[in-house]
Amino acid sequence: MKQEIIKSPISTILVWLVAVLVTGTFAWILGDIIFHGVGGISWEFLTTAPEDAGRSGGIGPILVSTGLILAVAMGVSVPLGVGTAILLAEFTSATNWFGRFVRRSLDILAGVPSIVFGLFGNAFFAKTLGLGFSILSGGLTLACMVLPILIRSAEEGLRGVPDELRLGAAALGLSRTTTLFHLLLPAAIPGLLVGLVLGIGRAIAETAALVFTSGYVARMPQSLLDSGRSLSIHIFDLSMNISGGDTNAYGSALVLVILLLMINATAAWLAHQSSSKYNDSYQFR
């Protein structure tokens, strides 16, 4: 019966239509950005500072700021996120009230609009902690924002590791720390990388949270306490606030898309490397 339903032409057409629609939309957006943006990209564009409010010149300092904001965000959120995920997956049972409370809070946090994180970051990091408009404020705000995503996917990754590994390690008398660092974390790397990619994706695309924290300054940052404009803010400003900024907005958008694709590809490659290595060294069945 089921097969008949699936093979009926209407549902086949519907399924194909949906698939074409989804990929078509993606191809359209990508094609539009490449078509408009590719002419503007050159080595000079990537390395020089913006001129005339971004209408001419390049995006050098903006790329550096974006990289630094991302580095701060990931440098802070990855250790915290992996730590929390280990606590949730390895040190508390799935039904533990504390674990459930943490998980519920994370799910709520994951759904909070980024502008709320921006206002929080502005009030807490920029004003209360006195970091001002700085790459540090922006990076820490983004770290708060991507933590829920990181933790949940790292937790899933750890929970996906077969229990045989834990039991085998315990039977061999390995300490829990050894088991964690030598068996569980390497085995969970694909899950961790998924979280990392999602987190970086959300962070690099963020605009609202950064306007109030890392700021609008398009100068080359000298330290993490300098304000620095991120690529996404630059694109937003050029396309929505600067008349005649469209060419460079498309160029910057293309750079952002290429960056994201590169990060995704690297993560996929790393996941593939680690999983094949893991399969070679830990053949247990």
């Binding site: 250790p79 700085s134 993490l224 306490l225």
Partner: peptide, 13 residues
């Protein structure tokens, strides 16, 4: 590790 990270940032500024 997080605190060391933060501290070094503060100094550079």
């Amino acid at each position: 590790s997080t605190m060391i990270g933060l501290q070094s940032c503060g100094q550079s500024g």
